[in-house]
Design a protein around this nucleic acid. Structure first.
Lengths: 339, 339
DNA sequence: TTAAAAAACTAAACCGATTTAGTTAAATAA
DNA sequence: TTATTTAACTAAATCGGTTTAGTTTTTTAA
């Protein structure tokens, strides 16, 4: 079972590489290769398990039928799920996926973008650090196909698929208000990500619309990398004192998990003492004690749409119109918000 | 900012492509390119942001500096975590990662293996369906570098990194026995995977060593794709009747999550009524009600070791010795097993 | 003083595909 | 009967790198 090349097939059958190549690319008819010859080529290729070298093919065609995916962290279940949907849809459309994690580092992200371009990916799907405006602009200027997911650059016109962070956060906050909570805190991460900002805004808007004041003392923004250690103090500070909070909104799933952990250590009863609600969820949020209410993101749609927009962009080079999709989150009410 | 090629640099500096290529590959000294010329080339390349076309490079070198990763499902947190560690370590060693999910389908896995070979990956890391013996043998015969993870072929000598499934399962079962449980059921998946078999054997061995009999009525093997719907009946059957179980061992994290869900629906108290313990865990197993005890797999070591073994194999083509590593799981005791 | 060695390069082949611009022989039209 | 088309191919260029086998000039050794 040794490797067989186009040249081998051509020589073996007494034909030219051209004929073989055309037939194997399904362009035999339009190039008037006789049915008989086509069959000989196809059969021989099949029998000898011919598989074109994609490097050579890619070099020649100037494309690779590969999509590059850059996410902050592939081991975050949220991105892992999106990645899976991207992979499935991409495969259906004839594309492979190369992935890399930026670890929320702008410089790394930039490196990855170029590394992927060098590998001749046909397009990129990026959940950006949102700190690489220049590179995104360059990509756009170069007319290179790409779609931003989860995080976008609000002031750059690009393809993107995001969720309604503002609406989602407003919704979960309102749900707590509707259930009589008046003193609602927020635990978020310290970040300039628009998604994070929007969630905070959604939260604040819900409060303001209810005629409540925003208390910056009960809004905690934790370091993205040290949130676990900072959580202890954040929670302690929020629940202690006479005017402790009666509910907490967490702006992302791992914050909710970590926060609940601390609440338990402090023996705070959830939801009787403090109700909690999360944006996005982990796999076992329905099994947690108490099951955590959340605003769930449509990971399947995010992945599928991103691929569809991207492939459309790749294959119809002339598309100037950018697709911008903002998907709705889904409110899942469980016990943690004290219905 | 238009693309610049090797030829452009050569022409611009009045040199040959050879000289430029050698210098850019850090082989200027050994090829006696003068320091001065080297500096000119390096500076020019830097200034013009030269980046070699990896397709051309790969074609020429016959390698891609890319590792292929095939897992059953990248959105399974277990594989996602391994993938992340693989990615980090691979990057450190100068390799990129291409991933794909086989969805536990042997035919798909076979396709993926070839698809990756066509893309000239330098090596493969595979968490196999364990139904592709022929392909694995072919890879080995062709002396193609690969490492199996999580699942291996017991009767084929290959590189692999797995965990001690037998020992891990025996351990968790013994822990339940030590705590006085006598009627311990098992919920596993219907599968020929050695890992699954070993876990069942570990469970059975623990029972036998304790002088207990194995009751096939309380060993449930569910369909890997329909386990959610089958779980209801499995659990109901195990806990009902006078001789219902007083503990259940789940052989994987999603079974434990699903099983606990059903136990709650049936109002079975955990662990007072039925204790449970899991093999491997989800992100929030410590927050679940009750927190689930588990035998945790060292995802970081699995990923790191796999990459190291693979890269070693890739770079020292002569390595005939296969590396076989069986890592230990870590017993995490939480409330679900009724300490 | 001349032969050999070293320094500093380069031309052209090569990797394995795709594609452009033909060629040749047979069929059809004038 | 001859000119044109058509059918069925092919030779060679190309993609953008790497590498082999030199070449030319300068330096060193005998």
């Amino acid at each position: 079972m040794k490797k067989i090349f186009l040249k081998d097939i051509a020589e073996e059958l007494g034909l030219s590489k051209t004929a073989v190549s055309l037939v194997l690319n399904n362009r035999g008819d339009e190039n008037k290769i006789s049915k008989e010859t086509q069959k000989r080529i196809l059969d021989f290729a099949q029998k000898n398990n011919y598989r074109p070298n994609q490097m050579a093919r890619g070099l020649s065609l100037g494309k690779s039928e590969t999509i590059g995916l850059i996410v902050p962290n592939i081991s975050d279940i949220f991105y892992a799920k999106i990645a899976h949907h991207i992979e499935l849809r991409a495969k259906k459309l004839g594309y492979n996926v190369v992935f890399s994690s930026s670890n929320e580092d702008a410089e790394m992200e930039k490196e990855l973008i170029y590394s992927m371009l060098n590998r001749q990916v046909d397009g990129l799907i990026i959940a950006s650090t949102q700190k690489n405006k220049d590179e995104i602009l360059k990509l756009r200027k170069a007319n290179f196909p790409f779609v931003l997911i989860d995080r976008h650059y609000p002031d750059i016109k690009t393809n993107y698929v995001i969720v309604d962070n503002f609406g989602g956060a407003k919704n979960i906050t309102r749900h707590l208000l509707k259930n009589g909570r008046r003193n609602i805190g927020l635990v978020s991460i310290r970040s300039e990500l628009d998604a994070v900002l929007q969630r905070r805004l959604g939260y604040e808007t819900a409060l303001i619309e209810e005629g409540l004041e925003i208390n910056t003392q009960t809004i905690k923004e934790l370091d993205p990398f040290a949130y676990k250690s900072e959580m202890k103090y954040a929670i302690k500070d929020m629940v202690s004192g006479s005017k402790g909070v009666d509910a907490i909104v967490f702006t992302t799933h791992y914050l909710a998990a970590s926060g609940l952990r601390e609440l338990k250590l402090l023996d705070v009863k959830v939801p009787s003492g403090v109700a909690i609600i999360s944006f996005d969820e982990l796999g076992a949020f329905d099994l947690v004690d108490p099951p955590i209410s959340t605003s769930k993101q449509p990971v399947d749609d995010i992945g599928n749409l991103a691929v569809e927009i991207l492939v459309n962009d790749i294959e119809k080079k002339n598309v100037k119109i950018k697709s911008q999709r903002t998907l709705q989150t889904q409110l899942l009410i469980r016990k943690s918000c004290g219905v």
